[in-house]
Write a protein that binds this DNA or RNA. Sequence first.
DNA 1: ACAATGACATAAG
DNA 2: GCTTATGCCATTG
Length: 119
Amino acid sequence: MKSNAKSATGFFAAVWRVVAQIPFGRVASYGQIASMLGNPRAARTVGWALHSLPEGTDVPWHRVINARGRISMDCGEHSPELQRLLLLQEGVMFDDKGYINLQLFQWRPEIDDSFPAAY
DNA sequence: ACAATGACATAAG
DNA sequence: GCTTATGCCATTG
């Protein structure tokens, strides 16, 4: 069986659920999501959950980046430039080095609204 | 149950 | 700041 949603246990579903809650124009790190799930060290599993996303998913996987505010390692199938474009479409800005200003764009459940660009 | 994998995180050089 | 090495966790074969 392919590693599809049905094969995934609650953890994957939990990851997708959390990612789906990331508001427009915001980004979250793998470790952050893992922490929300109660496993701050399970960042790798979070990344893997996103890699196992079904094709027709509604999960904004592109809003998930690494802790440094940068797009994660570009593996063959995954296109980092695609993720960058998707984020740019949402108003997330990258600096010359490809970094995102986490101070402005990192998702905080406490705030959860306020468009960062309005800063 | 064991070994290997992976879109990460952190520490050290 | 970038590269390399180690650790952590859940899933898969």
